[in-house]
Design a protein around this nucleic acid. Structure first.
Length: 673
RNA sequence: GGGCCAGUAGUUCAGUGGAUAGAAUGGCUGCCUGCGGAGCAGUUGGUCGCAGGUUCAAAUCCUGCCUGGUCCGCCA
C-alpha cells in the first residue's frame, strides 16, 4: 500500500491527542481553498464539539505537544482549521527521490493478486463502430490499463454478437450482391449501408404482413418491400376507421411513417446500393421475413454447412474493420467470444431445464420468462445488492421457441471467468442493458452459482447522442471514429504545414494526435453522463484535449534535450539526487510538486471509484500547471545553481508523470509535434 | 405506474461533507531578439433544478417534488 505523507502527519496528531483525551478521535485532512492558508488542513470542528473544547484550546494543545516532523514548516489555526505549512524544499526532495526509485512512476503491486477480465465494445457486427460503441472501448480499455498499472493481470475480451436476428437479413442481402458489386468503402462501413437497406426492406415487409393479418386491404400495385407516400395515406385511413387494435393503432401509424422516412432518406443517400438490393431481393426472395426467421433458426442450430460460413465470413469481415478502428485508438483485444458457440454447445436446454425444475421459469405458450423477482427473494441477491423493489420478469425464449440473447449470455457467463482464471470481470455495456445484465446474474443465482455472479459487474455508461438525436445504425446515421480521424488529420496537417517536418514525420504526428484527440474527448467525461457529441469540438486540438497533453510532454522533454547545449548534465543531477539541496522559489513550482505527490493516490482513487475520467482531468491539471511553470520559471538559463537543479528535476518528474498517465490512458507519447 | 441515471457560468464539463463553488470555450485586453505561442496573464460571466431535513459545516448525505434520458413480454 502506498503510504502518504499527509496520512503520517494525521497519525502523529491523532497520537498526540490520544495521550490527552484517551478516546479515539476521527481526524481528517483536506486541501485548503487557497495555498496561502497552508498546504494541508485539519478541520477541528468535530473534535471541538466532541471534546467540548474550543478549536483554539485543541490547537494549543497540539502545538505544545506535537514533535514537528522534519518536513513541517509551520502550523497555525485559522477559523477552526489547523493549517499545516510544509517545508517545500524537503518535501520536494522526498517526493522526487521517491519518483526516481520507480521505472514507471505510480505503479504498484496493490492489485497484483487480481486477474481481471474486461469485456468491452461487443458491438453488433452489422456496421462500423460509431462513437457510441467506442465509448465502451475507451472506458473498458482504461479500466483495464489502470488495473494493469496497479499490478493486476488483464484480459480484454470482445463478445461477438454473431447470432442475432439482426444479422440474418444482412447475410441474405450480402449473398445477393457479393458477386455483383464491390465494396466502395472500408468493409464495415460498407456493410453498415447494406444492413440499413436490408433491415428497412425487412421491416416494410413485416409491417405489411401485420396489416394483412389484421384484415386490411393492401394495394397490390406496390411491392411488399416498398412503401409509397400515397399508399401509406390509404392505410392510415383504414387503420383509423377500424375498431380493433385500439392501443396498437398509434404505434402502427408511427412505424409506417418512420419507415417511409428512413426509406426515402436511404434512397437519397445511397440510391444505387438501395436500388440493386431492393431489385435483387424482390426477384430472388419470396418472403424476406420468413427467410430471415429460417436463417436465424438454422444458424442457431449450427448444422447447416451452407449457412454457417455465410454468417461467419461476413461477421469476421466486419469484425476486422472494428479491430482496425480500435487499433487506431490504441486499443487491443486479447480474445473474441462468439455468441453462436454458446448456442451450439448444447448447454442452453440444460440450464433451461434446471431453471424450470427450480420453478424459476414462467411459461407463456412456447415463450419462457425468467422470474427474476422470485430468484432474488429466494436467494441472497436482494440483500447483497441492497434492492427493495420488485424486479420484472425477463423473456429468454420467444413464442417461436427460439432462445434469445440472455440464454447464450447465461452460458457465456457460466464459463467466462474460467477462460482466464479470473478473480473479477467487468462488462462495459451501455446502461440500456441494465435489466438484461441483471437478469443474467439472477439466472446464475438461480442456478446456484452466486459465487460466479458476484464476480461479474456490469459497468454501465450512458449513451452518446448526436446533435440532439441518437446514433441509429438501422438508419445508417452515426459518426464513426474513422470519420473523426480523417477530420482531425486534416486539422493537424494544417497546423503542421509551416514546420520543417518530413512527410513521414508529419504522418506519424497526425496519426498519434488524431487518435489521442478522439480518445481523450470521450474519456474526459463521466461515463454516467449522456454525451451530446460535437464533432467540431472533438476535432479541436486546443482546449482541454489529448493533443494539449502531448504538446506539454514534447515541450517538457525539449528542455531536457536542450540541457547539454547549456552545459547541464541531467543524468548527473539524477544520480546525485540525495546530495542536492532543493530550492523551491515560486508558486508554480510548488503546485507541480503537489500534483506529483498526488498522482499515485489519484490512480488508486480512480480505480476505487471506477472513474477513468478522473485520470484525464488530473492529466490536464498537471499539463496546465506545467505550462504556467514554463512561463514563470526559466530552467536552463537561471543563474542560481540550486534553483536550476530543482527545476531540472521538476521537469524530469513531469516527463515521468506524463509518461505514466499516457500509459494508463493509452495515449501515444510524442517527442516532437 | 416502477427501476436506474442526469440537472452546476451563454456553451461543454470538473468538483460526492470543509474555508470566497473551479476549468475550458465564447466576448474583451495584454505577452514571442529567452527552454517550442498547439502556450501564458488579465477581464467578463453562477439564488449548484425546487422545497424541506440531518450537521459546527451541504453542490455533495436523507425525504418529497419538477424536468430530461433510458429500461420494464418475445431485438441484441
Amino acid at each position: 500500500m502506498v503510504s502518504r505523507i499527509f496520512d503520517d502527519i494525521k497519525e502523529e496528531i491523532t497520537k498526540v491527542l490520544k495521550t490527552e483525551y484517551k478516546t479515539d478521535l476521527e481526524l481528517i485532512w483536506t486541501f485548503p481553498r487557497s495555498s496561502e492558508l497552508g498546504d494541508i488542513s485539519f478541520p477541528l470542528f468535530n473534535l471541538s464539539k466532541k471534546l467540548q473544547k474550543s478549536p483554539q484550546e485543541i490547537s494549543n494543545f497540539i502545538l505544545k505537544n506535537f514533535s514537528y516532523l522534519d518536513i513541517i514548516e509551520d502550523i497555525s489555526l485559522q477559523g477552526g482549521f489547523l493549517n499545516v505549512f510544509l517545508k517545500k524544499d524537503k518535501f520536494t526532495s522526498k517526493i522526487i527521490q521517491n519518483l526516481l526509485k520507480q521505472d514507471q512512476y505510480g505503479t504498484s503491486t496493490l492489485k497484483s493478486q487480481e486477474r481481471i477480465i474486461v469485456e468491452h465494445t461487443s458491438a453488433n457486427p452489422t456496421g462500423p463502430l460509431h462513437v457510441g460503441n467506442v465509448r465502451s472501448s475507451i472506458i473498458g480499455d482504461v479500466i483495464g490499463r489502470l488495473y494493469r498499472f496497479l499490478g493486476a493481470k488483464i484480459n480484454f475480451r470482445y463478445y461477438v454478437n454473431d447470432l442475432g436476428r439482426q444479422i440474418a437479413p444482412l447475410v441474405i442481402g450480402y449473398q445477393l450482391v457479393k458477386d455483383k458489386i464491390q465494396p466502395d468503402a472500408k468493409i464495415d462501413l460498407w456493410v453498415g449501408k447494406l444492413y440499413a437497406v436490408m433491415n428497412t426492406i425487412l421491416e416494410i415487409n413485416q409491417i405489411k404482413d401485420l396489416l394483412k393479418s389484421k384484415g386490411f386491404n393492401l394495394n397490390n400495385k406496390y411491392s411488399k418491400y416498398e412503401l409509397k407516400e400515397e399508399e401509406i395515406a390509404d392505410y392510415i385511413q383504414q387503420i383509423k376507421n377500424t375498431d380493433d387494435l385500439e392501443e396498437q393503432k398509434e404505434k402502427i401509424i408511427v412505424q409506417l411513417q418512420k419507415l417511409l422516412r428512413i426509406q426515402s432518406s436511404l434512397l437519397e443517400r445511397i440510391p444505387d446500393l438501395y436500388d440493386i438490393l431492393y431489385t435483387l431481393t424482390l426477384e430472388n426472395i419470396e418472403d424476406l421475413s420468413s427467410q430471415t426467421t429460417l436463417y436465424v433458426k438454422k444458424y442457431q442450430e449450427g448444422k447447416d454447412q451452407e449457412i454457417i460460413p455465410q454468417f461467419r465470413n461476413l461477421t469476421k469481415k466486419v469484425l476486422s474493420g472494428h479491430i482496425e478502428t480500435l487499433q487506431m485508438l490504441n486499443i487491443f483485444l486479447d480474445d473474441y467470444d462468439w455468441e453462436s458457440e454458446y448456442a451450439w454447445s448444447g448447454e442452453v436446454p440444460l440450464i433451461l431445464d434446471e431453471l424450470s425444475k427450480k420453478e424459476y421459469l414462467k411459461h407463456d405458450n412456447k415463450a419462457r420468462l425468467l422470474i427474476c423477482d422470485k430468484i432474488a427473494n429466494e436467494t441472497s441477491y436482494k440483500k447483497k445488492y441492497n434492492i427493495n423493489y420488485e424486479i420484472p420478469d425477463l423473456i429468454i425464449v420467444n413464442s417461436e421457441g427460439i432462445s434469445l440473447y440472455p440464454c447464450r449470455d447465461i452460458v457465456y457467463h457460466l464459463h467466462k471467468l474460467d477462460a482466464f482464471d479470473a478473480t473479477y470481470c467487468y462488462n462495459v455495456i451501455s446502461k440500456q442493458q441494465q435489466l438484461a445484465q441483471q437478469g443474467v446474474k439472477l439466472a446464475l443465482y438461480g442456478l446456484g452459482k452466486p459465487e460466479i455472479a458476484d464476480k461479474i459487474e456490469h459497468f454501465d455508461y450512458e449513451y452518446v447522442s448526436l446533435v440532439g438525436r441518437k446514433m441509429a445504425g438501422r438508419e445508417f446515421e452515426y459518426v464513426t471514429p474513422d470519420e473523426l480521424y480523417e477530420l482531425t488529420q486534416t486539422e493537424i496537417y494544417e497546423i503542421l504545414k509551416n514546420r520543417e517536418y518530413s512527410q513521414s514525420q508529419m504522418d506519424e504526428i497526425a496519426q498519434k494526435v488524431s487518435s489521442s484527440s478522439i480518445k481523450y474527448h470521450i474519456l474526459k467525461m463521466d461515463p454516467q453522463k449522456a454525451i451530446t457529441f460535437d464533432v467540431k469540438k472533438a476535432v479541436d486540438p486546443n482546449e482541454n484535449s489529448g493533443p494539449f497533453l502531448q504538446y506539454s510532454y514534447a515541450r517538457a522533454l525539449n528542455i531536457l534535450l536542450k540541457a547539454p547545449e547549456k552545459g547541464i548534465n541531467v543524468q548527473e543531477i539524477l544520480d546525485n539526487i540525495d546530495k542536492i539541496e532543493m530550492k523551491i522559489e515560486k508558486e508554480a513550482e510548488w503546485n507541480i510538486v503537489k500534483l506529483i505527490e498526488e498522482l499515485p493516490h489519484m490512480l488508486i482513487k480512480s480505480l476505487k471509484t471506477l472513474k477513468p475520467d478522473s485520470v484525464a482531468n488530473f492529466s490536464y491539471s498537471l499539463a496546465s500547471a506545467f505550462h504556467k511553470f514554463y512561463d514563470a520559471c526559466p530552467v536552463l538559463v537561471v543563474k542560481d545553481e540550486a534553483v536550476k537543479q530543482t527545476r531540472i528535476l521538476i521537469v524530469y518528474s513531469i516527463v515521468k508523470c506524463l509518461e505514466s498517465l499516457f500509459e494508463v490512458m493509452g495515449i501515444d507519447v510524442l517527442e516532437k509535434m
